[in-house]
Amino acid sequence: MRIGWKTLAVIAVMAVAVVTSTLYLLLSQPRLEDTLIIYGPRGISGLATALVNGFKSRYPDVNVTFISYGMGSIEIANKLIAEKGSPVADVIIGLPEFYAKVVVDAGALEPYKPQNLSLIPEEEIWDPTGTVLPMDKGYVIITYNETIISRLSLPPPERLDDLLRPEYKDLVFYQDPTSSGTGLSFLVWVLSVKGVDEGFDFLKRLEQNIKVHPSGWTTSIIALKSGEVAIGSMFNTDVGYEETPNLTSKAVEGFVYREGIALVRNAKHPEIAKKFIEFVLSTEAQNLVAPEGYMYPVNPKASVEFFSYAPVPSNRITFNRELAGSVEQWLDRWRREIKTG
């Protein structure tokens, strides 16, 4: 049986392409079972990358990877809980303060006190069990587009209750908390200040002014850029962001979003996981926090010069611990009563 040269040529090109591609993929991938696995939400992947790179330069022989499965902070925490019998991860990072209790109570984490914990001031340590260690923090504040607010001769918003002003109708946004960390922080901020039932009443009244609940940061920026919205919740470090002209804030009050790092119980690589946690608290790693994202370091020796432009809120609201453990019910309630109510 003779095969034509055209067919042969196509087969040869395809064979070379497939073999090259397969070899490239095989050789460029380290085996996951030999790897220190760090879980964390997708939104933290920029910082996680920098931390992993920094850790690799300190321990060049260690394979490390960060896995988010494209999940948010609550989902990745739930995945960790679901896997507690046979954990995949060694360390979790970006665990929000308002969900830490659920993961600690589920027994998915192992308490660990790193030798360099003294680098972190007492007031930054928020988990009373000491299992989840502080990693970074950010400030969610009320921002506004100064150009639009001035053009409409409106007073700039300062506090949560200001958002209810009737003259702000169709100008306000806050992100969908089911898909956005900033949106979830805003929800937790409202509930921490007002309590659950009163908080939901506030959110229902706020809907009259809401134009849209963007699905995340990018859609918020696009809505701000296009002038669809003018007032809404953003991280303080988004103020002055080059692509949202005239986004500013009075920064009278804001919510302190705090997230932590913890060792996974029955981790496959506990010793190197502990080294990673120590590294994250070190000044070297904490210096990476500001340039690689929108959060602040918790180690006071680390530089925050990168955010010198960002207004830090004078009244900083933290999570009301009495509410711990109910985030999923809040999200269900938000979808049912606020978004589609």
């Binding site: 460029s28 991938q29 380290p30 996951l32 997708r42 939104g43 933290i44 992947s45 920029g46 996680a48 990358t49 992993v52 990877t65 960060f66 896995i67 494209g70 995340g216 940061w217 990018t218 988004d238 962001y241 690689e292 994202g293 929108y294």
Partner: peptide
């Protein structure tokens, strides 16, 4: 995707995450 395995659409996400 993981940090070792990434395709172009995931790179878009990383760029968004780092503003």
């Amino acid at each position: 995707s993981t940090l070792n395995l990434m395709t172009l659409p995931v790179a878009v996400n990383i760029l968004i995450d780092t503003r």
